[in-house]
Nucleic acid binder design. Structure first.
Ligand SMILES: [Zn+2]
Ligand SMILES: [Zn+2]
Ligand SMILES: [Zn+2]
Ligand SMILES: [Zn+2]
Lengths: 169, 169
DNA sequence: TCGTGTGATGTTATACTATAACAATATTAA
DNA sequence: TTAATATTGTTATAGTATAACATCACACGA
């Protein structure tokens, strides 16, 4: 019960009322600052892709991004999108969602974390939460068998609370 | 500490010494029995695909399976492999591993479960474990935000104990 | 300032993964 | 038997991702 409070604190914007304009500018600024701090280059195409990901909390496929880049006057061959996405993912500004071959902006780019995604099959929005703890089944099992985890994928698909309430019956 | 014992009990064959011939025949028989019990048809192509998946604990891509089907005289258009795999996955005889677009035979086809995969980047074997409990971070978070989970993807990639020991230095 | 090395982008081509659509056949049940 | 249903055969195409190599931009020491 007390744990839930903490967990809730980590729930990203999607599925929750929030000031999304503020959400966007906050994350955009965070990215700019982090790049400066770390000597990374947030080039025009990289910045544009991050902006596209931040526009909503719905995940975008690489080819969705490619179309939008083209519409904005960028070069639009697949490697352009994939390279920008690789940069954003490698540096923690975005995550790849394996289940749906899509990408979302990270909601906590400052903290190293293992993201957990809840993918709503109805509204197609995605909520990001994360675990910093070593208490997940995954970590416990890995330790038990001596497996050294480099990266984790934790995703759930189903219905978000809002869509469930809106459901017939 | 006591929990680890239970967790270990769920670890599948891969990464552990085991009688793999027995492992294969056990799972093959389980599939045949379950199909009989449930009125499912383990047709030749479906049985062949399951055999291919059971041959090792390494995951196979759909097109790997397609080649092997062709080599065994089966028709070899993509839908043939995908349909057989869909049947096996839908009925719990195999799982899809999202991170690597590949398939493995399930190691506990009798029990409904949410599988967890540990994918070794060196030997490319995969160990399946599972959680029946509602105690994972995923379940706790889902309950906290009212998200209704239909399916989960939990995968870790890294190095298995054996490969880590074999590593230079 | 000029090279020079590094990283980033441009571009073509291709590889890999998956499904739509419809025809043909086999199985099951009325 | 016949009709409904499930499975398989086949062609074509959609969707996702990367290899390879050319060119360009920028940082930094000479
Ligand atoms: Zn927002
Ligand atoms: Zn994140
Ligand atoms: Zn085995
Ligand atoms: Zn399983």
């Amino acid at each position: 019960m007390t744990a839930k409070k903490d967990t809730l604190g980590l729930v990203a914007g999607a599925f929750r009322q929030h000031d999304h304009a503020k959400c966007i500018s906050l994350l955009m600024n965070a990215a700019r600052d982090l790049c400066t701090e770390r000597g990374l280059r947030l080039t025009p195409v990289r910045e544009k892709v991050l902006k596209l990901l931040l526009k909503s909390h719905a995940p975008l496929g690489a080819y969705d991004i490619l179309s939008e880049l083209a519409a904005s006057g960028f070069r639009a061959q697949p490697p352009v999108a994939y390279r920008a996405l690789d940069f954003l993912v490698d540096n923690g500004f975005a995550h790849r969602i394996e289940k749906i071959n899509a990408f979302v902006a990270c909601s906590q780019p400052r903290d190293k974390h293992s993201p957990i995604f809840m993918i709503c099959n109805d509204c197609h929005q995605v909520a990001e939460t994360s675990v910093r703890s070593q208490s997940s089944s995954l970590d416990r099992t890995a330790r038990a068998i001596g497996f050294d985890i480099k990266h984790t994928v934790v995703e759930a698909e189903g219905l978000c609370a809002e869509c469930r309430e809106r459901m017939p019956q």
